[in-house]
Design a protein around this nucleic acid. Structure first.
Length: 342
DNA sequence: AAGGCGGGGAT
DNA sequence: ATCCCAGCCTT
C-alpha cells in the first residue's frame, strides 16, 4: 500500500477539526494534546464528527485539562454527555480521567499498550491516541479503515472474520508519520471511499485497489446477515405537581441508558397493554413517541397528569425551565416534548 | 464469537 | 426506511 501517496493527499486535503493538529503544524513540531485527542476519540466511538463537535467544545471549555475532568462530579459529566448516546462511554471517560490523575500523575501513557489498560480505551482508541500523539507505528483500524481495506483487498468475507489479517496488512504500511497516516486513512474513508460512493478517480490508493479493478467497489465490505429489529411497547408517565414541576428519577446503574434521568414508565414488552398509572389522577393521553435503539424499536404512549406528590419519594421534582440541565437522554426529551414540556 | 449499547446524518 | 458512524465491554 502506497502510504506516501496517502500522506501526500492528506497534506492537501486534511479535514480541519477542533481536536486536530494540521499536517503543516505537525511538521513544524506542534504536538497534539493527548487529553484532547483522547476526549475526541471517546466521543467519536460509533458517533459522527458532526455530532461530536459541539460536545467536544463544551467539554473542553468546562474541563480544559484531565485534572479538571477527574475532579468533576460524575453527575455533571453524565449531564453534559446527555444526547450523545452510549452512556457507558461517559462513565468510563470519568473513570479514565481519574485513573490518569491517580495512577499516572495526570500524564497519559505514551504507548498503545499502556493506553489500552485504561477504562473505555480498546484496540482502536489506544492505537489512535498512540499514533496521533506519539507517532507510534501502530495500525489504527476503525470502521473507515475496515471499509477502505476491504475494498483495497476485495475482501470476500465480512470484516469481523478477517480483522487480524487486515490489521497485519495495515501494520506493514504504517510509515514514520504514523499519526498523520492514521488520520489520513480515516479522512480518506470519510470523504473519498465513502460507504455508498467511492470516488476512485481522485483516490491516492487508486492504483493498488482490487475492488476498483473489479469495477464495483461499493460491493465491499461484505456485510453479515442483519438481524431484524424487534418492537417493544410501553407507557410513559409525565407527572407535574401544582406548581408545574415535573417528576424525574434515575435509571438503574447498569443496562440501557444506565444512570441517566427518566420519567417513570411501564415495562417495555411486545404488547403495551393497559397503562398501570403510578397514581390516581386525571390522566390525559398525549400521543406516542417512537425511538429506535440499536437492537430494538420502542413505542411509548405518553400520558400526563397533575398529581398530588404523595408516595413519590425515589425521585425529584424539576422545574420545566430546568429540564435542560438534567441528564435526560433523547428518548425522554421526546417524551417530555410530547407532553408539552422541554 | 456474539450481543448489548444511542442517536443522528446521509441516502 | 436503511445504513452506519474515529468501538468497547460483557458473556
Amino acid at each position: 500500500m502506497d502510504s506516501a501517496a496517502v500522506l501526500a493527499w492528506y497534506d492537501h486535503h486534511a479535514r480541519e477539526l477542533p481536536w486536530r493538529v494540521s499536517p503543516a503544524d505537525r511538521r513544524a513540531g506542534l504536538r497534539p494534546d493527548p487529553y484532547r485527542v483522547w476526549l475526541s476519540e471517546i466521543m467519536l466511538q460509533q458517533t459522527t464528527v458532526a455530532a461530536v463537535k459541539a460536545y467536544f467544545l463544551r467539554f473542553t471549555a468546562l474541563w480544559p485539562r484531565v485534572h479538571d475532568l477527574a475532579a468533576a462530579p460524575l453527575d455533571s459529566v453524565l449531564r453534559e454527555w446527555a444526547g450523545l448516546g452510549y452512556y457507558a462511554r461517559a462513565r468510563n471517560l470519568h473513570a479514565c480521567a481519574q485513573a490518569v490523575v491517580r495512577d499516572h500523575a495526570g500524564i497519559f501513557p505514551d504507548t498503545a499498550a499502556g493506553l489500552q489498560a485504561l477504562p473505555g480505551i480498546g484496540a482502536y482508541t489506544s492505537a489512535a491516541i498512540a499514533a496521533i500523539c506519539f507517532d507510534e507505528r501502530v495500525a489504527v483500524l476503525d470502521g473507515n479503515l475496515d471499509r477502505v481495506l476491504a475494498r483495497y483487498y476485495a475482501l470476500k468475507v465480512p470484516v469481523r472474520e478477517a480483522k487480524e489479517a487486515l490489521r497485519g496488512a495495515l501494520q506493514l504500511a504504517v510509515p514514520e508519520r504514523a499519526g498523520d497516516f492514521a488520520q489520513a486513512m480515516m479522512d480518506l474513508g470519510a470523504t473519498i471511499c465513502a460507504p455508498r460512493a467511492a470516488m476512485c478517480l481522485v483516490c491516492p490508493l487508486h492504483d493498488g485497489c482490487e475492488a476498483r479493478r473489479e469495477g464495483e467497489p461499493t460491493r465491499y465490505p461484505i456485510k453479515p446477515q442483519k438481524a431484524e429489529r424487534p418492537v417493544r411497547r410501553g407507557h410513559a408517565f409525565v407527572m407535574q405537581d401544582a406548581a408545574g414541576d415535573v417528576y424525574l428519577q434515575s435509571r438503574p446503574a447498569k443496562g440501557l441508558l444506565a444512570g441517566m434521568t427518566e420519567v417513570p414508565t411501564s415495562d417495555w414488552g411486545e404488547l403495551s397493554g393497559d397503562p398501570a398509572f403510578p397514581l390516581v389522577a386525571d390522566w390525559r393521553h398525549r400521543g406516542q413517541v417512537v425511538h429506535v435503539f440499536t437492537h430494538f424499536r420502542l413505542e411509548l404512549d405518553v400520558w400526563s397528569a397533575v398529581v398530588a406528590p404523595d408516595g413519590l419519594e425515589t425521585g425529584w421534582w424539576a422545574a420545566p425551565e430546568a429540564l435542560g440541565g438534567e441528564a435526560l437522554p433523547t428518548l425522554f426529551r421526546k417524551v417530555l416534548a410530547a407532553a408539552g414540556l422541554d
